[in-house]
């Protein structure tokens, strides 16, 4: 009941945010200097052809009509056609999603698997060597630009020692998985893993460091709260206090922070994809911006905006289940 209402309210807000994103992008496109027709055809073509293209794109209409058309098209999932390649933008976005998604998920897994244990160790053994190690790591981790980290990893592990490839994605995860499930051939999966290892670590390091830091300080705060002493007085096992009570309560605010940091993850993905020639949305976005290919730029950013909104609604839902006070407010 309360939960359903909560989700509905969040979804409505989300739709509003997406509309805002679309509108801002439309505004940016409208004030972009230069004639988009020049991006589609040779500037030397005759005026008649130019006029025809202009009409086809609806560029001769008043701006509010263009805006209305654009919104209408979006509602039915029509993102238009790329200026550069004339292919449908929707296809160009969708085909690049798996690569970026793989990278983002792999990086998140790397971050969670390393950061939570590290944060717990750090938070429960304050001022011991393990804590100093973890805090130094996290300080360096949040202070290192990930493109440079990626290049250094390539320099060390690909160029010097030749353990990992320098980049590229020879096989998609879903294809590799399919091969494995149908033929029990594991080679493709291993190839995938081999190629994604460095990009995932590169993208994941900032988050590993961030989550370690937040977990550590969160646990220290949490241990100082009176309920922990009261729970200790009950005589329940230490493991239960540490994980069921303290870590759980520590993670509740961290989840929200991670939702907000999703933008950083996506920005990081753009850079990481560039460093490792990973054929994801980020790489495509860079190309699109360099060409001022507006339909494609809009398509990619709107897609990213929608994903951000949806994931944050999910995060809020998790937060609300873990922290019962939210629903009552």
């Amino acid at each position: 009941m309360a939960f359903g209402k909560f989700l509905l309210k969040r979804s409505l807000q989300g739709i509003l945010v997406v509309w805002g994103v679309v509108t801002v992008l439309f505004g940016l496109r409208a004030i972009t200097p230069g004639d988009p027709v020049n991006l589609i055809v040779d500037p030397a073509v005759d005026l008649e052809t130019r006029e025809r293209i202009r009409q086809e794109l609806g560029l001769d209409e008043p701006i509010y009509v263009q805006y209305g058309d654009y919104l209408g098209d979006l509602l039915v999932g029509d993102l238009g056609y790329s200026y550069q390649s004339s292919r449908p933008v929707a296809t160009m976005v969708i085909e690049r999603v798996p690569a970026t998604l793989e990278l983002a998920i792999a990086a998140t897994i790397v971050a969670l698997v390393i950061a939570i244990p590290l944060g717990v160790i750090s938070g429960t053994r304050r001022n011991e060597p393990a804590d100093y190690g973890a805090t130094s790591f996290s300080l360096v981790g949040i202070s290192t630009p990930n493109f440079w980290l990626g290049i250094m990893l390539i320099l060390l592990l690909a160029v010097e020692f030749n353990i990992f490839p320098t980049g590229r994605r020879p096989v998609a995860f879903h294809d590799a998985l399919w091969t494995f499930l149908t033929t029990f051939y594991v080679g493709d999966l291993l190839t995938w893993l081999h190629h994604i290892a460095l990009p995932a670590v590169t993208l994941g390091t900032y988050f590993t460091a961030l989550i370690t830091r937040l977990t550590r300080s969160g646990m220290l705060d949490e241990y100082g709260k009176p309920y922990v002493t009261a729970t200790e007085a009950k005589g329940i096992p230490e493991t239960l206090i540490r994980y069921k009570h303290v870590l759980r309560n520590t993670m509740i605010p961290i989840i929200t922070v991670l939702g907000l940091q999703l933008g950083t993850l996506i920005g990081g993905a753009v850079v990481t994809e560039t460093v490792f020639s990973w054929p994801g949305l980020g790489l495509r976005l860079i190309t699109a911006i360099n060409n001022l290919d507006w339909p494609l730029i809009q398509g990619i950013i709107v897609f990213v905006g929608i994903s951000y909104v949806i994931i944050n609604i999910g995060v809020d839902a998790i937060y609300a289940t873990l922290n019962p006070r939210v629903l009552d407010e």
Partner: peptide, 23 residues
């Protein structure tokens, strides 16, 4: 530690902060 709860237990001053808010 093994005596906590069964041999000794304790009531604290401020009940609101002595319970874990999320359980």
């Amino acid at each position: 530690r093994s005596l906590r709860g069964t041999s000794f237990s304790m009531i604290f001053q401020d009940p609101e902060s002595s319970f874990n808010p999320s359980l």
